[in-house]
């Protein structure tokens, strides 16, 4: 049986990790490759690098980060942020990324998903969805541009459309829960999980190990992602996994 995956996410800006200052044990906690190796050794099942560089140089640097990570890591990893074309996908996959994730660019031009899936295979194409509850619409709406712009898509409809086009996985972030540390958005996760037939990663809201247990037992989600609680050592991948294991959730 497949185990539930625990995925730390690293925000990288101009080649440096934006968070992660608490890692005094590392030679250089700002180095994404060092931090990625640390998580690999801790038992992370997978990693996500989110490139938030604004500059062209920053994006070039990201390719080097990916190449170095692929040389050092023994686990799969995804690269997202600013991937807009097949060429961008190719650059990251050739540099050694296992998957690429697209967000705004896929909403703007959904064929990007189909083209990527045809070219590289569905298993390489992750569609990241930022969703926020709307009282007016009585459902979760999809946002783009780092959560600044609302779209016409509901989270469930967009997840279905993305999967139909060939997305191999959905990375679902709850904007309501993100940064709150009060737990994953169970209702949102469940709604999207039940609507598609590809793996779904829950993201946004993890504050402790129990929250991972909750999302894995209250929904049938495949993986859960967190950033700051791992970076600031509020918990560790190791601790999350040992709590899950003790409570009978299957983990590696």
């Amino acid at each position: 049986m497949l185990t539930k995956r625990i995925i730390p996410c690293l925000d990288v800006k101009e080649g440096r990790v934006v968070k992660g200052v608490q890692f005094v044990s590392l030679r250089d906690a700002g180095d994404p490759v060092e931090l990625a190796k640390f998580y690999d050794e801790q038992g992370a099942d997978e990693l996500v690098f989110l490139d938030i560089s604004a500059s062209h140089e920053g994006k070039e640097t990201m390719v080097d980060v990916v190449r170095q990570s692929a040389a050092e890591l023994a686990i799969p990893f995804t690269v997202g942020g600013g991937i807009r074309t097949i060429e961008d996908m190719k650059n990251m996959l050739r540099a050694g990324a296992d998957k690429v994730s697209v967000n705004t660019s896929a909403i703007e031009r959904p064929e990007l998903i189909a083209e990527g899936a045809a070219f590289f295979g569905s298993q390489c194409i992750v569609v990241a969805i930022d969703a926020k509850w709307s009282e007016v619409d009585d459902t979760w709406m999809v946002y783009t541009h780092g959560g600044r712009r609302v779209t016409q898509w509901t989270a469930v409809k967009w997840a279905q459309e993305a999967t139909r086009l060939g997305a191999g996985e959905i990375l679902l972030t709850s904007m309501n829960q993100d940064g709150e540390k009060s737990g994953f958005d169970i209702a949102l996760t469940k709604a999207v999980r039940d609507a598609v037939n590809v793996p779904v990663i829950a993201s946004g809201g993890a504050g402790n190990a129990q929250h991972f247990y909750d999302v894995f037992t209250q929904t049938d989600v495949d993986a859960a992602l967190a950033a700051s609680i791992f970076h600031y050592k509020e918990t560790s991948v190791k601790e999350v996994k040992s709590v899950l294991r003790e409570k009978g959730v299957s983990v590696r």
């Binding site: 185990t3 995956r5 569905s122 191999g168 996985e169």
Partner: peptide, 8 residues
């Protein structure tokens, strides 16, 4: 769910 993706 296809592909079979993850740790087994």
């Amino acid at each position: 769910r296809i592909p079979h993706m993850g740790w087994n």
